[in-house]
Design a protein around this nucleic acid. Structure first.
Lengths: 221, 221
DNA sequence: TTAATTTAATTGATCGATTAATTATTTGCA
DNA sequence: TGCAAATAATTAATCGATCAATTAAATTAA
């Protein structure tokens, strides 16, 4: 009834002899890179295992062999590609919260360097983190939320309490606004839309305040 | 990224006009018959939805459209094909339990007529109900168990209490043995093996007792 | 050193399931 | 009556996942 197949291991990729192989030591990173490239190009939701396998020149079954299921592959990309990149930003922030101008400058500089080192980051970040329906909102909120944005937002809030920053602004939204305004201008529309839905402060108001904040330097209202 | 397709409804099977169609009135039975044919020919576990669809000349998606998932299709075949056939046997049994010879005769006659009306039944029954690992053991035990075998077994037990039947025999196993011995001799090996594992009475002993029961008529040991 | 055996890696085929597109038929309305 | 909108029925394409077969490499035994 069922016709049987005759596959097998083809061309025979060379392997370094000597020790027993625990796992193919070079293919896994290649698979992660292929997945990341597809996520960046097509979006996570629109990326199939077949597309990733095609990108890497392997068979979909091999992705299951290495990562289990599709969700675990996504998590591996986040853990081993996205988070390590983003984590480097945290260390570039100064600890002095009273110097808000320096804080913003350091943050913007850090994001700029981050994007320079990882050119794929903006597109992925905008589509999967900032835009509504993004696949990484929850993960990133949970993982880098307590680290980066909240860290920066806490320092903004401290500056507000000390009277050096307009208390009308939501510090968390200000952080995101800064990123959107300075680095992702082309994607600002969905960001504003997202912010508008998540906040009780109007998008235009927030936008105007943030631009003014950037234009006029700092200081209360 | 994803190339789009252009399917559609092909040749256009004729449909009787007039009333609104609640569901294609003739295709569903055909699908059930196709599934049953595959189950009988290849076994339930080895039958794929594709095989059933091929047998019926339709697409696998249509099976989902009509039955939901694969398990619901199996249940529909059992409910609408297997059980109605088996149910007719129950009515052919006499109510008088003291006439064990007549009871056995009626049962065997009923099974013979059943098989004559439904020639696919023996293969399916042996493979999916009697053999170990059969897909219908639980369902049949639950559904026809309380009706047919148990009904017959209860009358055997009653006859044992009344002293007209050897009390050493397990009435339930005797019923199955009768079926195996009289109608499915070619398949007796797996039946005996199954009985041997499910019972504390040896298969050969049971076999010998049942044959003797059939040979000598009835009466205690 | 060589031969046999085990283990890791990989494939092709196939599985059950979902989805968007498409067509035929029926219904509701002017 | 005629026609537009809705519904039922069906397909091709694709999805994530599994499995047996297969091969290369590494290990063990002789």
């Amino acid at each position: 009834m069922v016709t049987k197949r005759a596959p097998g291991r083809p061309p025979a990729r060379p392997r370094t002899p000597g020790r027993p192989v625990a796992a193919s030591p070079d293919l896994r990173p290649r698979l992660l890179d292929a997945a990341l490239a597809c996520y960046v190009r097509d979006g996570i939701a629109a990326t199939s295992l077949r597309a990733i396998a095609r990108e890497a020149g392997v068979t979909p079954a091999l992705l299951h062999y290495y990562f289990g299921d599709a969700q675990q592959l996504r998590e591996a990309v986040v853990e081993e590609r996205l988070l390590p990149a983003v984590d480097t930003l945290r260390e570039s922030l100064p600890v002095d919260a009273s110097d808000v101008a320096g804080l913003i400058a350091a943050f913007v500089r850090g994001v700029a360097g981050l994007v320079e080192r990882h050119p794929w980051l903006p597109a992925l970040w905008v589509r999967e983190v900032l835009c509504e329906g993004g696949q990484l909102r929850d993960v990133l909120l949970e993982r880098v939320g307590p680290q980066l944005p909240v860290l920066l937002a806490q320092r903004f809030a401290q500056a507000q309490r000390e009277g050096v920053l307009n208390p009308d602004l939501d510090p968390r939204l200000t952080v995101v606004s800064l990123i959107g305004l300075t680095l992702f201008p082309a994607a600002s529309a969905p960001i504003w839309r997202s912010l508008f839905q998540a906040s009780d402060i109007g998008a235009e108001t927030l936008r105007a305040h943030t631009i003014a904040l950037l234009d006029r330097g700092l200081g209360p209202g």
